[in-house]
């Protein structure tokens, strides 16, 4: 998944999004006191400008041109957008990542919350050790993980295919058109659960002890404390994780592109929108069409993000 940047920029505890200016009603601080802040954010803004804004503007510009092997480059208006919007391959990929997201994100967070709550409740020994073990897959680069899983799941040869056969499920091909999406869901959950556990665990730990103590005094059972008390208290964290995981999932790229190297027939040209962008740009040398598809994908993800913000704002998260 392409989540790496998105995720790692937003380290635990640091809210990803803040209104650009202090909300009205609070006294503004004097300009003189703001310059250290400006110095601190300059590197980030520079990187953002160079590696985000400039390429974005260039992509938009590129998407309005058409380059032909015979005839060179010329302005072609929205022709590339029309091609993308009428491409069944592209929409096929969009549908697939939406389904993927709808399955993977809730599952990952549910599993992560379960383990975070278990660690937080202190009911397992060596929780520090297990937390580290859970986090380890996240330290494995996505490419390496995908290669590893490709070998493990290889039909006929991988240990899991053998296991399926041994327990009587017959010949299971994890890369068949029916199972390829679930297979990727499993890989991605494996990669990202530990990360989500860490964030949720931190968030659970920040709940003041006396709140839990009061609940215990009132006779609440562990399950009630976790589900009725702690879960609502970490809801902002969960919303944030849903948002981050969703944006990452919609950009699904690494896993299918690596699987494609092992099982070319399992992953089509436009398997995900990101793969469509890659295959048109790099694979077919049509950078203009690829740029248009990238812009469309960005708009789709932007719209989903805006909707998510609206929901979070309504639930009163940005006070």
């Amino acid at each position: 998944m392409n989540q790496t940047t998105t995720y790692r920029e937003s380290a635990p505890g640091r809210p990803v999004s803040r209104p650009a200016s202090p909300p009205p009603g609070r006294p503004r601080r004097g300009n003189r006191r703001e310059w250290p802040g400006a110095v601190f954010i300059t590197p980030h803004m520079l990187a953002l400008g160079l590696f985000m804004l400039v390429p974005t503007v260039y992509a938009v510009y590129d998407s309005l041109q058409t380059t032909q092997l015979i005839g060179g480059t010329h302005y072609s208006g929205l022709a590339n957008y029309s091609t993308v919007l009428h491409s069944p391959e592209f929409w096929d990929g969009v549908r697939r990542v939406l389904v993927f997201t709808a399955i993977q994100v809730p599952l990952t967070i549910a599993i992560a919350f379960f383990f975070a709550a278990v660690f937080d409740a202190g009911i397992v020994k060596y929780s520090r050790f297990f937390r580290t073990v859970f986090f380890m897959p996240f330290a494995v680069p996505g490419v390496v993980a995908a290669v590893m899983w490709s070998f493990l799941l290889l039909p006929d040869f991988g240990p899991y295919a053998k296991l399926m056969q041994d327990i009587g499920l017959g010949h299971v091909d994890f890369f068949s058109s029916r199972l390829i999406v679930p297979t990727i869901v499993v890989i991605v959950i494996w990669e990202w659960t530990g990360y989500n556990v860490t964030i949720l665990y931190t968030s659970l730990k920040s709940i003041p002890q006396h709140v839990t103590e009061a609940a215990v005094m009132d006779g609440a059972r562990l399950g009630t404390i976790i589900l009725r008390l702690k879960l609502p208290m970490v809801r902002p964290t969960i919303t944030m994780l849903v948002f981050l995981n969703t944006v990452g999932a919609l950009q699904l790229f690494t896993e299918p592109s690596i699987l494609a190297a092992f099982q070319p027939q399992a992953v089509s040209y436009g398997f995900t929108p990101s793969l469509y962008v890659y295959n048109t740009s790099v694979g077919s040398g049509d950078y203009n069409l690829g740029a248009a598809a990238a812009v469309v994908l960005a708009l789709i993800i932007g719209a989903i993000s805006l909707a998510a913000f609206a929901v979070r704002r309504r639930s009163g998260e940005f006070r």
Binding site: P264, Q265, N279, S284
Partner: peptide
């Protein structure tokens, strides 16, 4: 382009 599109089409 031919090699890129081939894979999907012949899968």
């Amino acid at each position: 382009a031919a090699l890129t599109q081939w894979t999907s089409t012949f899968a």
